[in-house]
Design a protein around this nucleic acid. Structure first.
Length: 214
DNA sequence: GCCCAGGTGGGTA
DNA sequence: TACCCACATGGG
């Protein structure tokens, strides 16, 4: 089964996901950092608390005391590390772009990606998420579900490197922001429901029959 | 109580 | 390069 066929099955099963769930580009970036290895329900709690404290702007995060920031984002887990990461992002934004987020997001994709990866706390998945869902440029997002699902389908090795799995998608589906956005969201939806680390719940999976896992 | 969650950075060999 | 580990809350 090829990648576009898998996409069609997932879209038929789950419908359009409309990612990323955020009101602004900065909120999207905050969510991307907070959701690192963390369930979205916990991130929502932290984002709500940030909104209540008027901390969903670069200036808000820049000005707030880091100890206060840690306390506000506590429900998202790893709050010490993530507070430092949020601070690191806005420090970069003010240092390099005078705090102008749209100026930064308007940079060409390769420049944007390289600069994002230079920021403490932003690895390849977070960088690609920001490029795709905040800057709206075509960079396919790979996460733990992507590797698990497509290795269980037998399409790639389970130890495939991040950039190799990213290239596998980008070389085999059209380079389209809408497609990339929807595909990653559908992969996450499938993963949450049917492809956990253990207890894969294969019985009702829409990809049962073509997956070599069980 | 146990397992899991939309990763990343630092340390070590 | 390739492992190993810390980071932490909240839901099933």
């Amino acid at each position: 089964m090829d990648l576009l066929s898998v996409y069609d099955v997932l879209l038929e099963e789950f419908g359009s996901q409309g990612w990323w769930p955020a009101e602004t580009e900065f909120e999207m970036i905050v969510g991307a950092i907070l959701t690192q290895c963390t369930s979205w329900s916990n991130v929502e709690k932290a984002v709500s608390r940030l909104r209540a404290e008027n901390l969903l702007t670069p200036g808000g995060v820049w000005d707030v005391d880091v100890d206060c920031l840690r306390d506000v984002i506590r429900p998202a887990g790893y709050f010490n590390a993530k507070a430092d990461k949020l601070k690191a992002f806005v420090a970069f934004l003010y240092g390099e772009y005078g705090g102008d987020l749209m100026l930064f997001l308007g940079k060409p994709l390769p420049v944007l990606r390289e600069q994002l990866l230079s920021i403490h706390g932003i690895g390849p998945e977070t960088a690609d998420s920001i490029i795709l869902y905040a800057a709206h440029k075509p960079s396919f997002v790979v996460d733990a579900y992507t590797r698990r699902i497509f290795s269980r389908l037998g399409l790639v090795d389970e130890d495939i490197k991040y950039d190799d799995l990213k290239s596998f998608f980008e070389c085999n589906i059209p380079r389209d922001v809408g497609l990339y956005s929807e595909y990653h969201a559908l992969i996450v939806e499938l993963g949450k429901n049917y492809c956990r680390r253990s207890n894969p719940l294969c019985g009702e999976c829409p990809l049962r029959g073509v997956c070599g896992f069980s």
